[in-house]
Design a protein around this nucleic acid. Structure first.
Lengths: 261, 261
DNA sequence: AGTAGCCGTTCCGAAATACGGAACGACGAT
DNA sequence: ATCGTCGTTCCGTATTTCGGAACGGCTACT
């Protein structure tokens, strides 16, 4: 293992709770001698991505880390194209709207816009969540090649709530339903008490590269509200898709948007 | 120079436009032989922070970079405390509200909330801007030790518009005005056509560690509107300060909030 | 179709760097 | 005042990095 990779490992542990570590804690976590850990951390500090608190001597990520993360977003066409749409959707559904990207067989959260009507607190940008237990993930998976589905279920998947779909057969049926309806419905499968509706975003090559979701407390998504949200989100996601260069095979866009509208 | 620091340098060039580079471009930019650059980039790819497009062979930042940037925000108490306040302020002023932190003698943008009434497009999280040409920067500088001011002007400062304050004497007067009014006014000093009003956030130790600003087209911030915005932003920033553990020296908070309210 | 040039990748001996145990020094707690 | 903890420094050994050169695949021009 090269020293560089070791440095990255150490830096990564600063990106997890509790976000601030002493040298001794780092040594314990990575099973390193003090001298080595100190040298590696000094290199990280010199790089500017890590800083050491002059008082507590603890190490933490520096502002440069945020800058680099921002650069990822600035480069992301998905983010740039979807940004105004997500904001618009948040207003139309008056709820929390998420934008996620397909990344290494998981959902990478790119952006979240909260409901205009209420305060919210969420800092999930950059978080990674599983495909099988999120509306975003299911929406993408439904329009991905079979191999991706199999890959997800090649290892046991975690059940986050009692409603989480954990078998590939059940998921296959669910994905069929999603393809038929054009949007995914997450019924407290990832977080208890939280329902969400999601639709995929296709890129120029026709691959489901991302998704948009609207989420709300379970009791708010009942009856006709579900299909209503579905139609809004599906339409927004398609708008993003077209801007991404996606050309629907059917010349009739209406079919993708369902019977409503 | 260690190989690790070289890796970080290469990674940083991927965080700048055009965000995607070929090996040859990296060699040219950093004056490296092909073999060395290839090895360093391979290490970065192995780390997971950089990925190589299988088609174009170009290197770019990977999702892990976003994750790490997000971790910085999740750890930031300033971000967590100010988040709901910034959102509330955006509604009250119906405009763009920025949250910035003091970081290495510049303004580090942590968060932006757009006007609820209109679409906007901004991805400035993680961007760094100078203290002397932003409302956020001036607001902080006004409540910082003199040494910080001198440090900023120890080198020639860039004039972004014809209104940018470039002399330390003029800035000293400006900061005096800010201390008297309790908020900073950026009159197209950073970007032509853009005015903004900003107020500092103090931490437990009484240091101006961040600031909040409201910005709008110059023609929207005229007459009484300026003081109106100032009062709103100042009040919000103080709310954040108190939550950060700041104890105003004056028992009378009203003095910090000015005559209004 | 042929060929020249560009680009990414692989290989290898020489040389510089990383390695980690041990000693040191600065605090804080007992 | 003393012990223990923690971060820092030092140094000989061993491993890794270094970068020139050769290779192979691709594209564009002839």
């Amino acid at each position: 293992m090269t020293s560089t990779l070791r440095c990255f490992r150490l830096m990564e542990s600063l990106a997890r709770e509790p976000y601030e570590l002493t040298l001794a804690e780092i040594c314990a976590e990575h099973d390193l001698p003090k001298g080595s850990a100190h040298r590696l951390m000094s290199t990280l500090v010199e790089s500017g991505f890590v800083e050491q608190d002059s008082g507590t001597k603890r190490y933490r990520l520096a502002g440069k880390a945020l800058w680099m993360g921002g650069a990822y977003l600035r480069h992301s066409t998905l983010y740039r194209v979807a940004f105004p749409v997500v904001q618009d959707l948040s207003k139309r559904v008056d709820g929390m709207v998420h934008l996620g990207a397909w990344d290494h067989e998981s959902v990478l959260y790119l952006h979240t816009v909260g409901p205009p009507s209420a305060l919210y607190l969420f800092a999930d940008t950059g978080e990674r969540r599983p495909l099988h237990a999120t509306g975003l993930g299911k929406a993408m998976l439904a329009f991905r090649p079979e191999s991706d589905l199999e890959s997800v279920f090649s290892r046991p998947v975690e059940a986050y709530t009692e409603k989480t779909i954990t078998s590939i057969e059940a998921m296959r049926e669910e994905l069929e339903r999603i393809r038929a309806e054009g949007y995914a419905f997450d019924d407290e499968e990832g977080v208890a008490g939280l329902r969400c509706v999601a639709a995929p975003i296709w890129d120029r090559s026709g691959a489901a590269c991302g998704a948009i979701s609207a989420s709300a407390a379970a009791e708010e998504v009942v009856g006709a509200r579900r299909a209503e949200l579905g139609a809004i989100i599906r339409e927004g996601a398609l708008r993003v898709s077209v801007q991404m260069g996606f050309r629907p095979k059917t010349t009739n866009l209406a079919s993708l948007l369902g019977k409503s509208r």
